[in-house]
Design a protein around this nucleic acid. Sequence first.
DNA 1: GTATTACGTTGTAATCATTACAGATTAGGT
DNA 2: ACCTAATCTGTAATGATTACAACGTAATAC
Lengths: 139, 139
Amino acid sequence: MDTGKYTGILRENGIKVTPQRLEVLRFLDENRVHPTADDIYRTLKKDNPSLSKTTVYNVLDILSKYGLVEVLTISGTESRYDYGSTRHQHFLCTSCGRIVDIHIKGLCMDCMPEKGHKVEEVHGYFKGTCRDCLKGIGA
Amino acid sequence: MDTGKYTGILRENGIKVTPQRLEVLRFLDENRVHPTADDIYRTLKKDNPSLSKTTVYNVLDILSKYGLVEVLTISGTESRYDYGSTRHQHFLCTSCGRIVDIHIKGLCMDCMPEKGHKVEEVHGYFKGTCRDCLKGIGA
DNA sequence: GTATTACGTTGTAATCATTACAGATTAGGT
DNA sequence: ACCTAATCTGTAATGATTACAACGTAATAC
């Protein structure tokens, strides 16, 4: 497994490198399904039984502070985490619960008409029923 | 106090009229500050000490199901409620916690490029530091 | 090379918003 | 003025997240 990639990312941001941080970062990079903190915890705990959920929250917290992961609040009941911060939006299917990436133009840091506010994050959240659920394929 | 307005709104939507529903609806109409359920509860309890927080949640739930109020999940820690569903977006100041209305064009039900999904809600959430906090006026 | 110090991790115990539930009450039609 | 289903209330549970204190680790100073 190539942990070098993630070691470099952490170092470049001046974040101390630890196995837990590497694992969370790798997991998010390799599982682009907007997992919850608990999803991450349960999966990583398999290979590292001593992992604490508090650590997962701590790691997610620092990674998001440095912009390495994006926190999604689309579901309203729990936070979801997205690797990186490539500019894209999200669609939540209220039937199956999946979150789909949406690529929409015209929603950016500079598109806010009200002047004087300093914009640091932009989130476009769409909700409805996804293609698969409409066809009866989804959950 | 003109409860007639809100009675009409509820009746038009086939929602049974109760004092609690009228009060919540009126409060949201008259206080466009995106309050939390607890804000609503604490304020309305002053004039109606027997009000239950569960009722506030129930009322907000039915009002949002009928599109009479919009649920905002911008803060990530608690839901906030907005009267009506006039098409506008929201800016959360991470310094003072206020949510400011934003009027941006080009973010609508029909602007989603991915085809086949049925879009029922669109939320544009911006985060950063508001004008007042930048000037040192805010909290 | 060891002591010191700062930072990370862990596990448990709180917190806080929200939901579940059961019993009392009420709205709206008859 | 009933009757019945829907609503309201209060308390107890849930579930995500945070607080905190003890322990581990790694770098630095002596």
